[in-house]
Amino acid sequence: MPIDFSRTDQDDVSTLRIAGTLDVNTAPQLAPVIDKLVDDRRSRVVVDLSGLDLIDSSGVAALVALYKRSRVHGGQVTVTGARDQPLAIFKLLRMDRVFSA
């Protein structure tokens, strides 16, 4: 399954839903959405990964970039819904402590 993603804004919270596969092939497709979220200086971004089946280190790097760049302007990024392989990768890389709400 390739990647599927969407952004919805409600008040000061943006929700970025990512489903399918986030890897070296699909992470570049997500880059413009991440750029826009950072440029819009959203104060809170919730990344919903409940539909994500597979992630690799390139995908993790894309989410870390979102987290770091948002933090520069005081934005908060949290990840919800990670399961199975993506959850195992987050725990291994200790990203769960960074992204937890």
């Binding site: 399954m1 399918g20 596969t21 890897d23 070296v24 089946d53 597979l54 690799d56 280190s57 390139s58 199975d84 392989q85 195992a88 990768i89």
Partner: peptide, 27 residues
């Protein structure tokens, strides 16, 4: 299902590791 079904930690480990090694070889 066209998606991956990686419930088992065994599958998760091998698919994750292989994907990273594959990336290293290509890049």
């Amino acid at each position: 299902s066209a998606g991956y079904d990686l419930h088992d930690p065994f599958d998760t480990a091998l698919v994750s590791a292989f994907g990273e090694i594959y990336n290293n070889i290509v890049l």
